Simulated scan of single mutants.
Amino acid sequence: MPATTPSGAPPAIALRGVTKQFATEDGTPYTALRDLDITVRPGEFCAVVGPTGCGKSTTLTLVSGLDRPSAGSVEVHGKPVTSIAPGVAFMFQTDAILPWKTVLDNVSAGPRFRGAPKRKAFDDARDWIRRVGLSGFEGRYPHQLSGGMRKRVALAQNLINEPEILLMDEPFSALDVQTRAKMSGELLGLWELTRPAVVFVTHDLEEAIALADSVVVLTAGPAATVKARFAIDLPRPRVVQEIRFEPEFVDLYHEIWEALRAEVDVAYSQTTQLTGTEER
């Protein structure tokens, strides 16, 4: 029987005993994840942190249905994920907006694909374009936008479909520090409108704490698994640029960094040993 939340509903996302292996060039298996257990409640904002190569992005592909686990189970709202899961949106690290379409066409593409009449799709798209602060840019093409503006388009493109689950793979990593903080604040404001369950992958621990209700720390790969999970009991609504200075934030940062630092050290040691072996 699937686990349930305190309200009696199943978790929005449940990964239980998940192992994922890939075949290498010489045919031997590489274990990216092993015995991974993560649950996310409906409406919860969960951030996942860990060193490079620990399987954070792989975890998102398993939840989305873009890939299947080698062992264990992945469920969305209590149902096994056997294909691309309905009600799930995926925001990638690189822009997934269509370069040959205008902002309006990009944002309205989801509703139109789902059968919405053109006028309604355009009206809803204009509303979301306004919400992300791009009114007046409906006719622009992606190459005419800044990096931060393209991320706003991607947010509108995902949220217009009112997903129950939003998967985000380091979506702001390519932005400068100021724009990244601004986009994080805008994300929280937009998330509050519909409260999808979010799994947000990031290398930035400050970003994770500022955004999330919980932070999951993964161990270094290969065979990464959950090392620890921390509840982020900071009040909402939050101002991302300001909450980092609160004493409670600083205490959480030190606590989580103690768990994360050892894994970063392990991952760094593995890469330096590999480099040294290759040089010999």
Rank of each mutant, 00 (worst) to 15 (best):
Met149Asn: 05
Arg152Trp: 12
Leu145Phe: 07
Val216Glu: 01
Leu193Asp: 14
Thr24Leu: 14
Thr275Met: 15
Ser146Cys: 07
Tyr30Asn: 02
Ile38Asn: 00
Gly110Trp: 06
Gly53Lys: 05
Ala174Thr: 07
Thr102Trp: 01
Ile243His: 06
Phe90Ala: 08
Pro142Ile: 05
Thr19Met: 04
Gln144Asp: 03
Ser73Ile: 08
Arg261Glu: 13
Ser173Asp: 04
Leu205Gly: 08
Thr202Phe: 13
Gln21Pro: 00
Arg126Asn: 13
Glu263Phe: 07
Ser108Leu: 08
Ile160Ala: 06
Thr61Pro: 00
Glu258Tyr: 06
Val240Ile: 14
Phe122Leu: 04
Ser184His: 14
Val40Met: 10
Ile243Val: 15
Lys151Trp: 10
Glu170Arg: 02
Val226Ala: 03
Met168Phe: 05
Glu278Phe: 13
Val201Glu: 02
Pro235Ala: 13
Lys227Thr: 01
Ala228Ser: 15
Ala121His: 06
Gly17Lys: 08
Arg229Pro: 01
Ser73Arg: 15
Tyr30Val: 14
Gly27Ser: 07
Pro42Ser: 10
Thr59Val: 09
Gly72Met: 10
Gly8Phe: 03
Phe200Ala: 03
Pro222Tyr: 11
Asp251Met: 09
Val107Asn: 02
Glu75Tyr: 04
Leu260Thr: 03
Pro86Ser: 14
Arg130Gln: 14
Gly8Pro: 03
Arg238Met: 13
Thr5Gly: 02
Cys54Thr: 04
Val198Tyr: 04
Pro222Cys: 12
Val216Cys: 03
Glu138Asn: 06
Phe45Leu: 14
Lys227Glu: 11
Ser135Ala: 15
Asp26Ser: 13
Phe245Thr: 12
Pro117Arg: 10
Val132Thr: 11
Thr39Leu: 09
Arg130Ile: 00
Ala181Leu: 14
Arg229Ala: 12
Ala220Asn: 05
Leu260Cys: 07
Phe92Leu: 11
Pro247Asp: 10
Pro196Asp: 07
Glu263Ala: 05
Ser108Glu: 01
Met168Pro: 04
Glu162Phe: 09
Ala210Cys: 11
Asp213Leu: 06
Gln273Pro: 00
Met183Asp: 01
Val88Gly: 03
Gln157Ala: 13
Trp257Gly: 02
Glu186Arg: 03
Ile129Met: 09
Val266Pro: 00
Arg68Gln: 15
Ser73Lys: 10
Glu25Trp: 02
Ala223Ile: 06
Lys56Ile: 09
Tyr253Met: 08
Thr102Gly: 00
Pro10Asp: 05
Leu36His: 07
Asp176Ser: 08
Ala3Pro: 02
Val76Glu: 02
Ala121Asn: 05
Ala174Asn: 06
Thr61Val: 08
Gly72Cys: 08
Glu206Gln: 14
Trp100His: 13
Thr39Gln: 11
Pro222Arg: 08
Met1Ala: 07
His143Ala: 05
His254Lys: 12
Glu207Leu: 10
Cys46Ser: 03
Leu190Arg: 04
Asp251His: 14
Ala71Val: 09
Gly133Met: 12
Ala154Leu: 03
Asp213Thr: 10
Ile38Arg: 00
Leu193Arg: 15
Arg152Ser: 08
Gly50Leu: 04
Asn158Met: 15
Leu66Met: 14
Pro247Ile: 13
Thr272Trp: 09
Arg236Lys: 15
Leu60Arg: 01
Ser173Val: 09
Phe200Leu: 07
Leu159Gly: 08
Ala154Gln: 13
Arg34Met: 03
His143Leu: 04
Lys56Arg: 07
Arg34Gln: 15
Ala14His: 01
Asn161Glu: 14
